[in-house]
Each structure stands twice: as structure tokens, then as C-alpha cells.
């Protein structure tokens, strides 16, 4: 697994100019932006999604055939992509959070606490994003997975709208249901959030391993 991680970091290094530019843009953002917390979300997604690019790099020029003749199992390959996404996302998250906090401090902003909250909230959001995107990428590869994800998002929106319509039909006040949620308390909500995130990640991982085990190269 370590060998695979090194390979992905080397692939990332081959794109280092691109990353340097993005990092510079990010560092410059707080100068003209009121709310620095935006860069945390932006950078975290940008970083963690590079793991999807490494899957495309692996596939490019039929590289997977040779890659999968090397001594690792298909399961370790799958696990490594999750791990790599979390590591890279984590590094970018940390970088962006530090920049945002520094920016807030230099501006003497009162929003440091909010920025920290946003930063913490970004962690499960990043994990969710990886958990959803990775199985698509494993199944469909670079180009097709984008279309598949658009399709899936569309499906979620349609399902949501349908749920609202159905609720209206049965005279259920959804707003009231959501309003009663804060009553759970911050601690409960955080625990539930962490629990759901971990569960979603594990389910995603299981699906991805299943997809990879069936693949032919």
C-alpha cells in the first residue's frame, strides 16, 4: 500500500505547477474576499478530488493492466485511493484553514470562531464527497463518471422534490420537522453526524471493493 501511496504522490508532484498556482490564488483570496471561510471548502474539495484524477492517470494508456500485475490486491488499491483522498484533502484543509485564520487575525475579524466551525464542518462534507464520487469513478472511469454523477445528482433532486410534493399531499409540515431538529442539541447532532459519515464511508468502500473485484483490464 505504501508503494501505491508513493506512486500517487509522485503523480501529484508531476502536476506541481498547477497546484502551486491554485495555492497562490487561494492565499490571495482573503485580500478581496470578506468571508475567508469559503477558501476552506474550496481547497478541501480541490485537494481531496485529486484522488479521482490519480484513478484517471492509472487508467490512461491502459496502464491498469500492468499496474494490477504488481504485488498488491485489488482491495488494497481501492483502500489506498480512499486513504490518498483523505490525506490530500486533509493537507489542503489544514493549509486553507491556517490561511483563513491568519487572514481573519490580520483583519481583526470577529469571525474566527465561525471560520473554525466552518472548517470542522468541512471535514465530514469532504468525506461525504469522496464516499459518493469514488465508487462512480471506479465504476465508470474519468469521462463517464462525470455524466453518471450529474445523473445521480439529478436523481437526488427529483427524489427530493417528489418527497416534498408527497409531504404536501399528506399535509406534513416539513419545515416544522426540520425546525425541531436543533432541539437534539449540538453534542447529539455532532455524534450523529460523525456516525453517519463513518457509515457512509464504509458503505462506499464496500461498494468500491465490489466494483474493483469485478473489473477486467
Amino acid at each position: 500500500m505504501k508503494g501505491l501511496l508513493i506512486k500517487d504522490f509522485k503523480l501529484l508532484k508531476s502536476q506541481k505547477n498547477f497546484f502551486v498556482i491554485i495555492a497562490l490564488i487561494t492565499a490571495g483570496m482573503p485580500i478581496y474576499m470578506e468571508d475567508s471561510s469559503f477558501i476552506i471548502g474550496y481547497m478541501t474539495f480541490f485537494g481531496s478530488l485529486f484522488t479521482l484524477s490519480t484513478i484517471s492517470y492509472d487508467e490512461f494508456d491502459n496502464g491498469n493492466a500492468f499496474l494490477f500485475s504488481l504485488p498488491f490486491s485489488r482491495k488494497s488499491y481501492t483502500l489506498e485511493k480512499y486513504e490518498f483522498g483523505l490525506i490530500i484533502g486533509g493537507i489542503f484543509w489544514l493549509f486553507a484553514t491556517v490561511i483563513a485564520i491568519i487572514a481573519e487575525m490580520t483583519k481583526n475579524s470577529m469571525m474566527i470562531k465561525e471560520t473554525l466551525m466552518t472548517a470542522l464542518l468541512m471535514v465530514p462534507v469532504m468525506i461525504f464527497l469522496l464516499a459518493i464520487m469514488l465508487p462512480f469513478q471506479f465504476k465508470f472511469g474519468g469521462e463517464k463518471s462525470r455524466i453518471a454523477i450529474i445523473g445521480a445528482v439529478g436523481l437526488v433532486v427529483v427524489t427530493g422534490l417528489a418527497a416534498v410534493k408527497i409531504a404536501e399531499l399528506f399535509h406534513i409540515d416539513l419545515a416544522a420537522v426540520f425546525n425541531s431538529l436543533p432541539a437534539m442539541g449540538m453534542g447529539m447532532a455532532a455524534a450523529a453526524g460523525i456516525g453517519i459519515t463513518v457509515l457512509v464511508l464504509l458503505i462506499s468502500l464496500k461498494i468500491s471493493v465490489g466494483i474493483m473485484n469485478k473489473k477486467e483490464f
Binding site: 508532484k13 508531476s14 493492466a65
Partner: peptide
């Protein structure tokens, strides 16, 4: 293994490949 139509990613260099092989 040598495969006719497949090999290490073209974006890597020989220097990149060495630690990968060393760890695999």
C-alpha cells in the same frame, strides 16, 4: 511482468518509479 500495451504511468519518471518498486 512485461505487458505489450501497458506499463507504468507515462507521467512518472525513473526516479519516481524507484521508491514505488522499493516499497512494493
Amino acid at each position: 511482468v512485461v505487458l505489450s500495451d501497458s506499463g507504468f504511468s507515462g507521467y512518472l519518471t525513473v526516479n519516481d518509479v524507484i521508491p514505488v518498486l522499493d516499497n512494493l
